[in-house]
Design a protein around this nucleic acid. Structure first.
Lengths: 202, 202
DNA sequence: TAGATTGTTAATCGATTAACAATC
DNA sequence: TAGATTGTTAATCGATTAACAATC
């Protein structure tokens, strides 16, 4: 299993996983051509993306279950990783309650917020913690991955604090380009921008 | 102002807008080089992206306010467009309350849901409507743009209904590849997949 | 066997960057 | 003027697709 894979290709793995899981249970094997047609992609690209799994069998295709497992393994879904939601507003609360992360071996353990009215409460069964003694709390919860759902205005300063307390990767929903030190990883999701781009494609 | 612009380039326009708006008010002019450094991009790419605005002045750069206006105009932020949130669960409710869409001239007018307990109520001052007589309701609200926040299981069937009732573009949060007819536009945001990809980049 | 399918090498396509003339 | 900056043409880089040998 070779490990050189571009981010572009990596991003397609969840797409394959979702599609493969959506198939009827009695679909045991599937070819690159069938996947490509279903997803509107070129079949060579599908084969190239899936080649690392060594699951392809000539004349047969890929065994669905094994392929899903191999893709999940490549994405790191096997070793469960804890994550925290930072900012327990509307979006943060919704993500706390969202069950979709477990599919990728991600365990949302807590939210962090500095609203005294929220601290100590639970949302969707998960505790809302304060931001004092953040480092200790993150260590106790074994969290190095954060989802940042604070207002844009505070995003950079909260990110700075998170990174200084041991967070290594941030999924950022604020429409702000975070400045982070070498070694930290950030991905951005700007919902409003996505909707604006969609509108201009109508 | 030329109009041939790839989706790739189009997606960068909100990034420029956000950055330019974040600058101190007394920054009147800015060069492509300064923008590039701030955003970690190549400066030629910035110039290419901004050339359509005809705002660049040699030796001077771009006048910030005019540049923002030109970018907003290109994105279509000027003619305000109505949109609906479909699925008034946690995520849908959070998006109803989110104020960031107005920056792009998008007006969230209502939510749609088929939970009788929610229909007729308001969330963040916006009405939650039922899905009966959807076509009429969408027409009355003048909505052709929808944000789909229903569980994956129902995403395709709800999308079908939306499209049959006049919706032309869907921002889809369900981890499902929607099958839509020619002419309809879809963009997908899979939050869990994004977090999984981020994790595997740590 | 013949035919369907994989994986890889070479070619193409599209996006970014380099080079540079134009301008103020 | 000299120097800073733009916009565009040509070159490069990276990702996708075409061609094809290998295989069962």
């Amino acid at each position: 299993m070779k490990n050189e894979m571009t981010v572009t290709a990596l991003q397609r793995l969840p797409v394959y996983i979702n599609y493969l899981k959506s198939l009827d249970e009695d679909v045991k094997y599937i070819s690159s051509g069938a996947i490509a047609r279903a997803l509107g992609m070129g079949e060579v690209l599908v084969r190239k993306d899936l080649a690392f799994t060594s699951q392809g069998r000539t004349r047969v295709g890929y065994m669905r279950g094994e392929l899903i497992s191999a893709l999940e393994k490549r994405l790191g879904c096997n070793d469960v990783k804890n994550a925290a939601i930072v900012g327990a507003g509307g979006l943060g609360s919704a993500l706390l309650a969202y069950g979709g992360f477990v599919n990728y071996g991600i365990n949302i353990v807590a939210a962090y917020d500095n609203d005294a009215a929220k601290i100590g409460t639970q949302i969707a069964g998960k505790p809302v913690c304060g931001m004092d003694d953040l480092q200790k709390s993150l260590e106790e919860n074994n969290v190095t991955l954060a989802v940042l759902c604070v207002p844009a205005k505070y995003a950079q300063q909260v990110a700075d604090k998170l990174l200084s307390c041991g967070i290594k990767a941030i999924l950022n929903f604020a429409p702000v380009l975070l400045q982070v030190p070498q070694g930290a990883v950030v991905r951005n999701i700007d919902v409003a921008a996505n909707l604006a781009v969609l509108r201009s494609l109508m």
